[in-house]
Design a protein around this nucleic acid. Structure first.
Lengths: 201, 201
DNA sequence: CTCGAATGTAGGCGTCGCCTACAATGCTGT
DNA sequence: ACAGCATTGTAGGCGACGCCTACATTCGAG
């Protein structure tokens, strides 16, 4: 059968990946509200019902998109983490990496942290989140082993640190801070986190 | 003219408020995705185009909803703040109030922090956010005056503290923490924020 | 090679946001 | 009191969307 521009082969070949890639681009360029299955189908050159063969509904596509986001985030954090560094520069580097990712992928991050409802998606999402938080927990656990930070349940310390970082990223995403201001604040945030706000005697 | 159940008066009387109230209920009970102007119109007993007289489009209604949310939040924080308290309990109380609000109004908070586009809405929103952050900044400025916390730009200190609180709230909204766990962590978070993670000599 | 599974197509259904033309009502100035 | 205008609500239509079903084509395991 001919493969002229107007008549592609009946089967796309890798529609699922094409949809996800197209969706990510649209998400980045026009935001989540501009995402429509029909438009994605048009961009892929297939009929408006074809995406339904790969994603049972729109939410399923968004979930898949979020999961790819977690993969990229995990990879980003992994390469940013240098276990040889002392706590403060190590944590700062990790924080900068997370903030940079959140600025570059604001809409995607919104999807990643959106409350899902289907139990299966929630499971996979929770596992991905745990993996992300794991990067931070490793840093703090190491620091604790070396006596660089106070005793206490490392999970709680991770939560406090993670909340501060995520909060900064979230505020930036909400346009309460410019990305530059946020990146410029990271070092200070980590410093205050480690040294506390109360004066040291 | 008759006012039987089937034939209300031609004019609703206070459609705008009715729409906002109905929207807030739907938002709380079914989430933002379930909000539709046509459904709100049906609940108010008016035609599907009537809401357009009070909100130029759906986003305008969401913006108005967010602004009422900021009013309620400001009121909540205001009554929760006791300037007579020393820093730690004062900050803890404020944090608990914010967290409680964010748990009770998760979907609304999502709207409040959503990136808007129309310049007018963004202005009003930014003013509301400043008002909210002001509650926190007052606490820290007072503490600084009393020498309870380190020197430094109070705006930066506010940012660090606010990021941590907002992060905890945000993580709770994203179902990474149960509301109980979050509330149970607040005290510890404030403590670590004030005393730092590094061991005190 | 065959036949079922996987994948894509065509069309339809109900809902939505938004638009326009029109009707009813309220309000203000005389 | 009331004319005239601005406000508010109505009726209907438009195009887009998500999702569904019935059907067509292709792939691949036996």
């Amino acid at each position: 059968m001919s493969m002229s521009a107007a008549s592609r082969p009946y089967h796309h070949g890798d529609l699922r990946s094409a949809l996800l890639a197209s969706a990510e681009r649209t998400l980045r360029e026009k935001g989540v509200a501009a995402l429509s299955l029909r438009e994605l189908a048009r961009e892929a050159g297939v009929s408006h019902a074809a995406p339904g063969r790969h994603f049972k509904d729109k939410q399923a596509l968004l979930n898949a998109l979020a999961l790819t986001g977690y993969d990229r985030l995990a990879q980003t954090l992994d390469t940013a983490d240098d276990p040889a560094l002392p706590l403060q520069p190590r944590l700062t580097a990790l924080a900068r990496a997370y903030l940079a990712f959140s600025v570059d992928n604001a809409a995607l991050l919104e999807l990643m942290y959106a409350r899902k409802h289907e139990p299966d998606a929630t499971e996979r999402m929770a596992a991905a989140i745990d993996r992300t938080i794991g990067s931070l927990e490793r840093v703090l656990a190491d620091a604790q082993k070396r006596g660089e930070i106070v005793e206490g349940d490392p999970e709680h310390l991770t939560l406090v640190t993670g909340a501060a970082l995520h909060g900064l990223a979230s505020m930036t995403a909400a346009c309460m801070l410019t990305p530059e201001a946020a990146l410029g604040t990271v070092d200070e945030l980590v410093h205050h986190l480690l040294h506390g706000l109360k004066p040291r005697p």
